[in-house]
Amino acid sequence: MEQKTKQEILSVEELSVSFSMYQKGLRKGNLEVLHKLSLSVRAGEILAVAGSSGSGKSILAHAILGILPGNACMDGRMLYKGQPLTEKEKKGLRGREIAFIPQSVDYLDPLMRVGKQVRGVRGTKERQRELFRKYGLEEGVERKYPFMLSGGMARRVLIASALMEDACLIVADEPTPGLSERLTEETLKSFREMADAGCAVLLITHDIDLAFKAADRIAVFYAGTVVEIAPAEDFRKGKEALRHPYSRAFLEALPQNEFCPLPGFQPYAAKLPKGCLFAERCRERNEMCMGEIPMRKVRGGEVRCVHAR
């Protein structure tokens, strides 16, 4: 068991994703939205990827599942259970071993009954009924259409869909916005249960509070890359325990802390600064920040900052 919880399910190494698109008339250009992003999730663990809206977090989820649009271009490496995860592998694994939990009921076909949708293309009726019972969905729900579901029911339906088959890796993209506190707790509890059952859970969220509560480790996402990965307790301890100035600013901005927002904006993907992406807004910036900033291991976490000690 100990061995199993340690197994690295997904490892993303130096992932870059760019989109080719038309800029200013007919000039075609590349817009890089993820830059050399690295992270890994182990079995039995919840890794939260936390970052502000529009920083490209969903692109990460889509890249892992291999459902990026046609004009996207990927660079870097992904390993699934130690094996290279190519597009062909993804095709075979998604829906079977890699499950995706989307944001909202909009991800369900409005014209298909819920039961049929949860079963998907391979699921059985028995398994679907079992999951519905587990998540407190009445039998009548399977005959309903998505528009008839309440927010909480829709959430449980989407979770049930993810568990139809034996998922080893669950990628949840913003699974809680718009849910009541009770439903959020319930959702997080089900993620914990999945992790306890041996799944690796990648929880993508813009809600740092949620990340504190639910995750074992938190990856802080900024301008298309991960700037720090740290155990969740470091975030609970306070900003001294953190390694990256952005993570610290993130904490300071919370209402229960100083409630002090960081001035400035994330850089736009087409106009990225050289070197450290955060340098423009950083108080500790100096000439060392202008070069290539590698991911380093510092105090049991990882950080992309030359000043971190």
Binding site: H62, F100, Y107, G120
Partner: peptide, 25 residues
């Protein structure tokens, strides 16, 4: 639509997407 993306994320092939979601919608 997002539900087509989700269908792909759940491992449906293009044929299955046309058959299950395309014609229906």
């Amino acid at each position: 639509k997002e539900f087509i993306l989700y269908a792909r994320a759940r491992g449906e092939s293009t044929g299955q997407i046309i058959w299950r979601h395309g014609i229906r919608n």
